[in-house]
């Protein structure tokens, strides 16, 4: 019963998010609108953590599982690369490393600056 109740709530919020994105013409997909909606519902106390806890934690802890079909899709989409494997991989690899480093360093720098400012 509990799992069904939690699943019902989560799926309902997802559906509401899809509707919001579609009818308000938001530039973000319904799942992200749903995520924001769930956060608002939790923050306002309309929804309590216990209403979704077990099911949500199961999904989060096993998130990789839900991505398997999408990653297997590489089997058919790789044709789109049309032979540009090396250049594409190189750009993606380097860019990913750059983004990771820039975000980590700038966030850490901003946090350190703030903490020094406080003192």
């Amino acid at each position: 019963m509990k799992v069904f109740k939690q699943l019902f709530i989560i799926l309902g919020i997802n559906l509401a998010g899809e509707l919001l994105s579609k009818y308000l013409h938001l530039p973000i997909p319904g799942s992200i609108s749903g995520m924001i909606l769930l956060l608002v519902l939790l923050l306002t106390g309309i929804l309590k953590e216990k209403h979704i806890r077990e099911t949500a934690d199961f999904m989060i802890q096993n998130m990789g599982f839900f991505f398997i079909p999408a990653t297997v899709g590489v089997l058919v989409t790789y044709h789109a690369l049309d032979g540009h494997y090396f250049q594409t991989s190189l750009v993606v690899v380097l860019s990913t490393i750059i983004v990771l480093a820039v975000t980590a360093l700038s966030t850490q720098l901003l946090i350190n600056l703030k903490e020094r400012w406080k003192k």
């Binding site: 998010g17 749903g34 995520m35 769930l38 979704i52 999904m59 989060i60 998130m63 839900f66």
Partner: peptide
């Protein structure tokens, strides 16, 4: 399984 990515994204609000 792929269609469940929607709800999986939604529940990311919980850790937040």
């Amino acid at each position: 399984i792929h269609s469940l990515l929607g709800p999986v994204t939604v529940v990311l609000a919980l850790p937040l």
